[in-house]
């Protein structure tokens, strides 16, 4: 059971990391368009050279 003394703090750390990633995603506006990205992945997005 002593392993829990390690595992539980690790789980807390993981939650903190996930929360940080999520907040970063919100801040960078990734929840503003919920439809576009689903289509965008199918498009070829190599930008053509500037003309």
């Amino acid at each position: 059971m002593n392993i829990l003394y390690l595992l539980i703090p690790i789980s807390l750390a993981i939650v903190a990391i996930i929360a940080a990633i999520f907040l970063w995603a919100v801040r960078t506006g990734q929840f503003e368009d919920m439809e576009g990205p689903a289509h965008r992945i199918l498009m070829d997005d190599d930008d053509p050279p500037k003309s």
């Binding site: 576009g36 289509h39 965008r40 199918l42 498009m43 997005d45 930008d47 053509p48």
Partner: peptide, 9 residues
């Protein structure tokens, strides 16, 4: 979606 792609590019 292709319209979005086209306009962006």
């Amino acid at each position: 979606a292709a319209c979005v792609w086209l306009n962006e590019r």
